[in-house]
Design a protein around this nucleic acid. Structure first.
Lengths: 150, 150
DNA sequence: ACAAACCCTACTTTTTTTATAGGTTTTATA
DNA sequence: TATAAAACCTATAAAAAAAGTAGGGTTTGT
């Protein structure tokens, strides 16, 4: 029955991309006084594919969390303080919206096709509350909370 | 650039299955003194495929939220009080785990491959906190909160 | 000049979600 | 008791998303 459990394990969770991003950020946070760090070192530490991680770090760089240095002796390094990197921003960057429904998303709003009047949709109203409370959690936990536990 | 936004709209959110389940439960909640309700009526009200909704209602029935009556004049009806149906149970049933990572899931736990020692993983520790706080929200909001807003 | 390292884009594969199809069983009722 | 309406069940197909791969381009220290 292992197959059955497998089916359930991986839905609605963070994607591997996001999970790996957190691992990488944590690694960079721990080594932030060591100059730049190689993709290879992070990949090896966590057993992640080099090429896959490369894409992720690139996204994190473009979004302004990381700096990089090309060529021999190059690598990546954090350019933000860990306390200024909330979980919510990383999740949004790599996984998209945090809201549970498009119709309550702050950043990626889209109306529901099956609702005639959103204002009168109880599900919408309740999900707005859920969104606000969830966001409150994810905006107040940062990379520095992760680093504190390591 | 519409395609780009499209890409972002639909990740990490509730699946349509779960969303439709909430719509159906809400509909059944509103009509709970009317005897049984046809799949067709719910599908028509929200413009959902009859056959798709059929599978969803069946799951809700097997999980003990709904009762049904076969044959002519049959249909579905709620067999639980709306206040006893927390969002968390519906989401878990149809979308799987609520935790953001398998390694912090209460119901669908699985160790991370990339972590040597979970006890020392800061991400794990922080995600446990996030899980507990999120769960606190989703277990305390119920179908009756949705119905109250309609 | 060379090799090490990041940068960039496109593609392929795998998994998950979203349906659809086609029948079986049950039940009210004419 | 024949009929039609409705839920029940399983399998499969199609579409979308996530995960991973490929291959070269660019920069830089030595």
């Amino acid at each position: 029955m292992g197959w059955f459990k497998e089916l359930l394990y991986f839905c609605k969770m963070l994607s591997k991309k996001t999970k790996y991003a957190f691992h990488a950020l944590t690694y960079l946070g721990k080594h932030k006084d060591d100059g730049s760090v190689l993709i290879q070192d992070i990949a090896a530490e966590h057993g992640i594919s080099h090429k896959f991680l490369e894409n992720i770090l690139l996204e994190l760089k473009k979004a302004g969390f990381l700096g990089s240095k090309k060529g021999k002796g190059g690598g990546y390094y954090l350019i933000k303080e860990p306390k200024d990197i909330p979980l919510s921003r990383i999740i949004r960057l790599l996984d998209g919206p945090i809201a549970l429904l498009p119709c309550v998303s702050l950043n990626y709003y889209e109306a529901c096709e099956e609702c005639k009047d959103q204002e009168k949709c109880g599900l919408n109203q309740v999900m707005i509350q859920v969104r606000d409370e969830t966001l409150n959690i994810l905006e107040n936990k940062t990379l520095s909370d992760i680093l504190d536990k390591e």
